[in-house]
């Protein structure tokens, strides 16, 4: 958990169970097939989940009057592109997307690296005070974002970092969740014997980390990277304090668009669509992995 993102976005729950019964349970449970009602209910939920996103595209191409018509419109039309163009003029969404890619990319790389290093140490190395430090990490997950922002704001104001991307990147690198996630994964996935084998083979501690730990940790690192990127892309609270619409991330630009004096809902919706689409495309492509990662994290936690 970064200090600057809300807690529920990443935390993993506590139930744990060995992987063997889990696999067995999964296979066996499948025997009970879903009836038509189940499919209908799930279909409805899926529709409700996706509809607001689709509606963004519809609303982005209609005037208010058209939207209020009976029956309401359910297909976007060509005005969509006109409105996207207008949104891009009203708010620097292109710049925002570039900024968000940079910010979320840096945060992801840094977080995964720090988390893997620390998670490995907490999972497999014994050093004085390790339990207390891990407790500190876990405790951090409960701390609300609000608790850090005033001093951080003062800090970046003094460093004259307001409106600079590093003001968003650096504080968000601290991910207690990432450390905890990697620790949970490595405690299970990395047998002590493997580390001992590396020691017997004469590998130094650093060599062991790069040649043995990182390859084993790679699947969890990928999951953590996806979740971190998503969270960083969607992060809202700290960016709207640290940045202005002069040099925004996507969320800051959207907040500006929504909170500004743009009279036309369609333009706001068009901006929302453009700002959301990149991450949604990534999500659809990697959806299966992200789902797997969240569920894996749930059981591991």
């Amino acid at each position: 958990m970064t200090t600057l993102t809300s807690a529920p976005e990443q935390a993993v729950p506590a139930p744990a169970s060995a992987s063997a019964p889990r696999r067995r349970g999964r296979r066996a449970r499948k025997v009970t097939s879903a009836g038509p009602l189940t499919h209908v209910l799930l279909g409805l939920t899926a529709l409700l989940s996706v509809f607001p996103l689709y509606w963004t595209a519809v609303a982005a191409s209609k005037t208010n009057a058209e939207l209020a018509g009976t029956p309401p419109p359910f297909l976007p039309d060509a005005d969509l592109f006109t409105n996207i163009g207008r949104a891009m003029e009203e708010a620097p969404i292109g710049l925002a997307i570039v900024n968000s890619v940079i910010v979320a990319g840096c945060i992801t790389v840094g977080t995964v690296l720090c988390s893997t290093l620390a998670g490995f140490a907490f999972a497999k190395l014994r050093f004085r005070g390790n339990k207390a430090l891990l407790g500190l990490v876990v405790g951090t997950m409960m701390v609300p974002t609000q608790l850090a922002i005033i001093p951080l704001f003062i800090l970046i104001a003094q460093l004259q970092w307001v409106d600079h991307l590093q003001a968003v990147v650096l504080p968000t690198l601290v991910s207690a969740f990432g450390v905890f996630f990697m620790r949970q994964f490595l405690s299970q996935a990395l047998p002590d014997e493997l580390l001992e084998a590396a020691r017997m083979d004469g590998a130094s501690t650093l060599r062991t980390f790069w040649s043995v730990v990182v390859p084993v940790a790679r699947p969890a690192m990928a999951v953590l990277a996806m979740l971190t990127f998503l969270t960083a892309w969607n992060d809202f609270f700290w960016p709207i304090i640290a940045l202005t619409t002069e040099n925004p991330t996507v969320q800051v630009a959207l907040a500006g668009l929504g909170g500004g004096y743009v009279p036309d809902t369609a333009v706001i919706m068009a901006g929302t669509l453009v700002g959301t689409l990149p991450v949604l495309v990534v999500f659809v492509v990697l959806g299966k992995q992200i789902v797997g990662g969240i569920m894996q994290g749930a059981v591991k936690g």
Binding site: E193, L194, A197, M200, S211
Partner: peptide
């Protein structure tokens, strides 16, 4: 040199 119970082969 040591042979481990679970072999401890580097999986990657």
């Amino acid at each position: 040199a040591m042979v481990f119970q679970n072999y401890a082969l580097y999986p990657h």
